[in-house]
């Protein structure tokens, strides 16, 4: 009987958590942006976006290089190494760009957001905002939310672009694939709306999910050192799982049915 009671209790607490998270998202989405808040968003774009650039660029470069290397060793068996360009570009634009960027973003910026908001809660800064008649959803949550949604697609595009250059570095400069075919076949194969735009849509969806999870986990954290540590871990774990799961669904919708 006990397990039934605990199952019910845990279901109820999860449902209420989802309800609270939705209310927070609603508040963040519809916090009417004021002119003052624009500067807050720009500030946060710097924190979550610009400061994530290094990890995104370095990872993009290496992932592009690895795909080129792996791709070349397979394609060369069939004399198809000329198709290395589109292979690298499509892998990055459709999948690895949005997905790896989102995973790195969850680890780099998502965890930082959770810890920051959680500590603001623990040190009563959120409470003091409330008492100063300033809505924390509008002042703290919304700028971070929008900054994440703006930054992540841009980071994913930068990731893919650097990855393609990394592929060029390995495929063309090192392994000797013809530079002309690397670029020209890529140009004729990659479609703007199907590949580039779909990749951007994916990263916008990932951004919404990661930032939502990160902010909610911070906002809802138990205000102790243990609670914040748990919330930070959960942000990374839940975001990563959500990204991979949603990626499959989106890929099936975008590319699965011809």
């Amino acid at each position: 009987m006990n397990w039934l009671i605990s199952l019910g209790a845990s279901t109820l607490s999860r449902l209420s958590a989802i309800g609270n998270a939705s209310l927070m998202l609603w508040g963040a989405l519809f916090a009417v942006p004021r002119l003052k808040n624009i500067s807050l968003i720009i500030q946060q774009v710097y924190v979550v976006g610009v400061q994530s650039l290094l990890i995104i660029i370095v990872s993009g470069l290496f992932i592009g290089m690895v795909i080129a290397l792996q791709g070349y060793t397979i394609l060369v068996n069939y004399g198809a190494e000329g198709s290395l360009g589109p292979m690298v570009a499509l892998s990055l634009l459709r999948e690895l760009g949005p997905v790896v960027t989102a995973l790195l973003f969850a680890g780099r910026a998502g965890s930082a957001l959770t810890a920051e908001i959680g500590l603001m809660k623990a040190t009563e800064q959120l409470s003091s905002l409330e008492m100063m008649a300033v809505d924390p959803l509008r002042r703290i949550i919304a700028p971070r939310f929008w900054a994440g949604v703006i930054s992540m697609p841009l980071l994913a595009l930068i990731f893919s672009a650097i990855g393609i250059l990394g592929g060029h570095l390995v495929g063309v400069d090192w392994l000797g694939v013809d530079s002309g075919s690397y670029w020209s076949i890529m140009q004729s194969t990659v479609e703007w709306d199907k590949d580039v735009i779909n990749g951007v849509i994916k990263s916008i969806v990932f951004a919404l999910v990661v930032v939502w999870i990160a902010l909610y986990k911070g906002y809802d954290a138990i205000p102790t050192s243990e609670g914040i540590s748990k919330a930070t871990t959960e942000t990374v774990v839940f975001s990563s799982l959500a990204i991979l799961g949603i990626d499959f669904v989106l890929t099936a919708l975008m590319f699965g049915i011809n």
């Binding site: 040190t123 009563e124 800064q125 409470s127 003091s128 409330e130 008492m131 100063m132 008649a133 809505d135």
Partner: peptide, 19 residues
Amino acid sequence: LYDVRRKMSMLFQSGALFT
């Protein structure tokens, strides 16, 4: 409530300054 809160203020134990 937000209008009324402008008339009241609270000094938190920790100070709750924005760090």
